[in-house]
């Protein structure tokens, strides 16, 4: 009985807190301002909107009727999304009504320059590493102001796996170090012959 009362009290308190948060919460229709992980050094993100071919997206989409039905696009956009193994589609990340913004899982608007906030919704560990500098790429300096590349600079959001490519030329083989035919450098030849002798 006593514990029941306590639980009720906790519940009520929680509700009060939640309500207070709901009242203070910013308008979700506004671009999101993420506070970041505590203790992470400050940084700026290299802007990317100028590099986007179709941006601003509303140029075309404002004349179209928003269609929230899950389907395969057969227009100018990537038809195949090699991301999320079929569990996500366009509107998981893109906002339906305001096409110039991305969309978090909480339905918050995110600017294209801050796409990492969308990625971080699922890839939280990577996102945190990126904030602290263990993932991602810093630009220009190791000291002073931190400028980072966004996730989408390196990863295509629609197919994020990095594709293999040709390596730069190999160093010249030093004279005398050419591989000799018939010699297995990878194995310890001495040991193998020893084992063979033992077996005989």
């Amino acid at each position: 009985m006593n514990s029941m009362t306590l639980q009720c009290l906790v519940c009520v308190m929680c509700l009060v807190v939640l309500q207070a948060q709901a009242e203070e919460a910013p308008d979700v229709r506004q671009p999101l301002r993420f506070e970041g992980y505590p203790g992470a050094p400050e940084f700026e993100v290299v802007p990317r909107k100028d590099e986007l071919f179709f941006y601003p997206c509303a140029q075309c989409h404002e004349t179209m009727e928003p269609n929230p039905e899950i389907r395969t696009l057969n227009t100018m956009h990537d038809a195949e999304i090699e991301h999320g193994r079929g569990r996500i589609w366009c509107l998981s990340c893109h906002n339906l009504e305001n096409r110039n913004y991305l969309n978090t899982l909480l339905n918050e608007l995110v600017d294209f320059d801050e796409a990492h906030l969308v990625c971080g919704g699922c890839h939280a560990n990577r996102h945190k590493d990126w904030y602290f500098g263990a993932h991602g790429k810093r630009v220009a300096s190791w000291q002073g102001d931190r400028t980072l590349y966004n996730c989408t600079h390196c990863h295509n959001a629609h197919s994020p796996a990095i594709q293999p490519r040709a390596p730069k030329p190999a160093p010249p083989v030093r004279a005398g170090l050419e591989r000799q035919p018939g010699i297995q450098h990878e194995k310890s030849a001495v040991w193998d012959t020893h084992v063979e002798r033992e077996e005989q």
Binding site: P164, R165, A166, P167, P169, A170, P171, V173
Partner: peptide
């Protein structure tokens, strides 16, 4: 370190 395939990795 002399590897030279078509593509890496």
């Amino acid at each position: 370190h002399y590897y030279e395939p078509e593509t890496v990795p």
